[in-house]
Amino acid sequence: MTPGAWTTLIAALARVEALPPDASGILSFGEPPFGAIFVDRGRVCWVAADGLQRRLRDLLQHHAAIPDAALDSVYERCRREGRLLGETLVAEGWLSTAALEAALRAHSAESLIVLCARPAPLTWTPRLAAYHPEVSFAPLDLLGEVIASAVPDEAAAAAGELAALDLPDVPVAVFAADPTGDALRPVAFRDSAATVDGLVAMSAWARALPLAAHELGVHPRMALASTTTGDSVLGWWRQGLLFAVVPRDRGQLALVTSRCLAIGDHP
């Protein structure tokens, strides 16, 4: 994905996230639309992109123990009756709800990657009635899925570092710098209260660190920023990635600082 595609992706997901919790409707890409995010009560229930209609069928078949002929039959029946293929497969016992969720999550991520590949205006069209889908996703969940799909090596490196740090209760975000991009690109995050908007704010702050390091001609092992109200953000570099933590209190700050410095110099 290009830096521009990441920017579009984050803008679209942040826009869904900013909707009221009871909002349902369609966020269309382009004019005329070449795809859309379907929103059910503030959550993403479906992402459609031109050219990927068959892909969901393939993903569902990958997860379901269903022969080709039987899938074709169910598929045609769903088309005739206007029913949803995935939920019909679950209702008829071909697919578990967990497998449906995995397939829809993967399909949504792939569709988002396609949709965000070209710059396009976003248009929100509200809908009075909710869709009431079997499965839906928080925007941040889908951002994580796109990251895992688009930059798996970076996501794995970040996960490995986070496991080595062994700080399960500490909110953390990991970023990579795109050379031509103005902002940092999220690679991993861990915080039950995190939002796409929160990650954007975090990346805006963290962007100062590589810029300052570049100006100084140095490679900091760690950086700590504090606000007028005493809040702190801690950042450090590992494997070319920037790790950023917003400690909940001074105890967490001290713990992360010591753990970070103990691990040693960044490569």
Binding site: G198, A204, W205, A212, H219, A225, T227
Partner: peptide, 27 residues
Amino acid sequence: ARCLTPRATPRGDVAPAPFVEYVLVLA
């Protein structure tokens, strides 16, 4: 100049406040 460009606090549960101190630990 890079660091002290105004930026909001990256935490949703506190009011935005400007960063006033950066500490860079070098080797």
